[in-house]
């Protein structure tokens, strides 16, 4: 499974959205209907899935699906 697909799967499970809505440009709040606590829980799911720490400061910048994928790639995560 690609990194993109894994991230999409996590977002679909947490937010109950359709996979096709989870585009790189999709904004968690305005496009996918997340509130602030959904975002915290998403970051926790990413931390658990990819075994890394995401600080609050970093999390604040991760407002779109693409930003999360870029962030994970920059951390050296491929799957």
């Amino acid at each position: 499974m690609s990194l993109e697909n894994r991230v999409t799967e996590i977002i679909v499970n947490k937010l109950g959205v359709k996979a096709e809505e989870v585009t790189p440009e999709a904004h968690f709040v305005t496009d996918l209907g997340a509130d602030s606590l959904d975002q915290v829980e998403l970051m926790m799911d990413f931390e658990d899935a990819f075994d890394l720490k995401i600080s609050d400061e970093e999390a604040g910048k991760l407002q779109t699906v693409g930003a999360v994928i870029d962030f994970l790639k920059a951390k050296g995560i491929s799957v």
Binding site: S36, L37, Q39, V40, E41, M43, D56, A59
Partner: peptide, 11 residues
Amino acid sequence: EGGEIFKNAVR
């Protein structure tokens, strides 16, 4: 600081 507390609380 609610967000950071949330994460720590659950775990």
